[in-house]
């Protein structure tokens, strides 16, 4: 039987104390948007927030780096604390088809792959340098078990995802090019400002040329 040297315990204690202030600073910023968003729907106590943090994986992603690639299983539901992500698929002609953008405070994942464990058909990459919080299925289950009121948040999240999907589909089939662009501009001006035009065009189901023409038309006096 061996004894651990005392210096190691002492060293650990001092190190932890020294780093506590730094960690508190980082921690408060790292989860700021995340808990703000959740607390808009359900109120989490400090203890509940601490439980939640145990299951979150903080991750920095550089611009153009991938967090999910086609063929891989989507293991995480991704929350954007800072930055901008894009989810897209590549069609048979090799063109990108943008499915979703995710700004600060938004969640993004391939839900089908995340829930079923099947390989994803989508890619998710960073359009800007990002700070993300990732949670896997087991983590979510554990959070729901330990914080039952989080179920309410999950339900609302799913509901909103369904509404957004339904609305996007209906806009694609019922609205004109100009109307679709105007809706996006009204609702998400940040996306229009921060995302390159060819990606906006892809998101709206247009070619960049068509979007450019539509924008020109909109600036002409009626």
């Amino acid at each position: 039987m061996k004894q651990l040297p005392l210096f190691l315990f002492e060293r650990c204690r001092i190190t932890l104390r020294l780093n506590l202030a730094k960690l508190c600073l980082f921690l408060s910023g790292m989860y700021e948007v995340f808990f703000k968003k959740i607390n808009e729907v359900i109120h989490l106590t400090a203890d509940e927030e601490a439980i939640f943090k145990n299951y979150l994986k903080p991750k920095k992603l550089r611009k153009k780096q991938f967090i999910l690639q086609e063929g891989d299983v989507c293991k995480y539901s991704i929350f954007v604390e800072k930055g901008l992500l894009r989810s897209y698929s590549v069609n048979e002609k090799g063109n990108d088809q943008v499915v979703q953008f995710a700004l600060e405070g938004w969640w993004i994942a391939d839900l089908y792959s995340f829930i079923t464990g099947e390989p994803s058909r989508y890619n998710i990459d960073a359009l800007e340098d990002c700070e993300l919080l990732l949670i896997n299925n087991d983590g979510l289950k554990e959070v729901r078990r330990q914080i039952p009121k989080f179920l309410e948040f999950s339900f609302l999240q799913m509901q909103n995802a369904y509404i957004a999907l339904e609305r996007r589909w209906s806009h694609m089939v019922t609205l004109s090019t100009e109307e679709r662009y105007n809706k996006l501009l009204d609702k998400y001006p940040d996306i229009v400002q921060r995302v390159p035009q060819h990606m906006i065009a892809s998101y709206l189901g247009l070619t960049p040329e068509t979007l450019s023409r539509a924008k020109k038309q909109m600036t002409l006096p009626k």
Binding site: L23, F26, P58
Partner: peptide, 19 residues
């Protein structure tokens, strides 16, 4: 060495979660 590993572990604690 272990002493330094423990020091670094304390420093990166917030970002090593679930990794």
């Amino acid at each position: 060495d272990l002493e330094e590993q423990l020091e670094v572990a304390g420093y990166i604690k917030a970002v090593a979660n679930q990794k």
